[in-house]
Simulated scan of single mutants.
Amino acid sequence: MSFKTILTVTSPGHGDADLKLGAALCEDVEAHLAVFVVGLAAPPPIGAYAAVVSEAWYQERQVDLEKLQARTDAVSGLLASMTISSDIASEYQEIAWADEAIGRRARYADMALLGPDGLSSDELKTNVVEGVLFHAGKPLLLVPAGHTPTLSPKRIMVAWDGRLESSQAVAWSLPLLRTAEDVHLVLVDPVEGNEEHGEEPGADAAAYLARHGVRVVVDRVPSQGRDVASALRQHAVDTAADLLVMGAYGHSRLRQRIFGGVTSSMLESPPLPVFMAR
């Protein structure tokens, strides 16, 4: 498949950097840019003092709605000045349900982009990641500061662990992998065996990619006392990768939040553009 609709999400108080990255990407591949402006509402007061603070809470919501409208108008003006195809929607949502609202919008896109603005805001980042990956089942492109997104990367590194999430990420990224000059399928401390990576770790995945016309080599990387995320980061540098493809949340979100993991590490500080799916 090709990526014909790309979603970006913004909120009041955020800048236009992510929108401009998304617009440039859409212009490059002749895609449509969908923008969702989401206002995050504070939960209503509860308890003994609810009656006292309810008026202040109501006034706060009115201010939030005014800010949301102002941000929506500003984004509309920005989109009108561009030559790309685009649309905009906005919604004021309780924080607890914002990820579902974002997911509903993401279902009508081929992928979503989360750039430096979104990555710097824990609240917005969490809602975008969970909305896109869990409520829409679509891939997410993370673009850290200092990087320019592209859907024509020359050197791609695929983090492969044999799980369903890795398989989904590979399937979604096939259009990118086919056109890349160099694809490294990377396994960190792979374990042989039918219930792990097979008799020759990486061979089955490489054969699958080769049948799709992907020029792929298998790299079996020892962790050498490092965590998996650190090993992947270093190998991305060693191979001069332009893009990292990886599955997201091979473990539960709760476990990731408590104990950390590769997904959490990459979301916290992506070393290069990351194409993430599950």
Rank of each mutant, 00 (worst) to 15 (best):
A277W: 06
P201Q: 02
A70L: 08
T263M: 06
V128P: 13
S152E: 14
S167K: 12
L177K: 03
V52A: 14
T148H: 15
V158P: 00
A89H: 14
D219Y: 06
L164E: 11
V143A: 15
L185Q: 09
A96H: 13
R257F: 02
L254Q: 06
A236M: 05
T239F: 09
V63M: 07
W172G: 00
A96Q: 13
R233Y: 12
K67T: 02
L19E: 08
S173L: 05
V228Q: 05
L187F: 10
A145C: 07
K20F: 08
S264K: 12
S167M: 08
S167F: 03
I258C: 06
E130S: 10
H197C: 04
G260H: 06
A231G: 02
R257M: 09
T263W: 01
G260D: 04
K125A: 11
G261Y: 03
A112L: 00
V170K: 05
S81Y: 06
G225D: 05
A145N: 10
G15I: 11
D16W: 00
V129S: 01
Q59E: 13
L187D: 03
A136P: 06
A56N: 11
L65R: 15
P271H: 14
L164N: 14
S265H: 07
K154N: 07
T239E: 13
A240F: 15
G131M: 11
R71A: 04
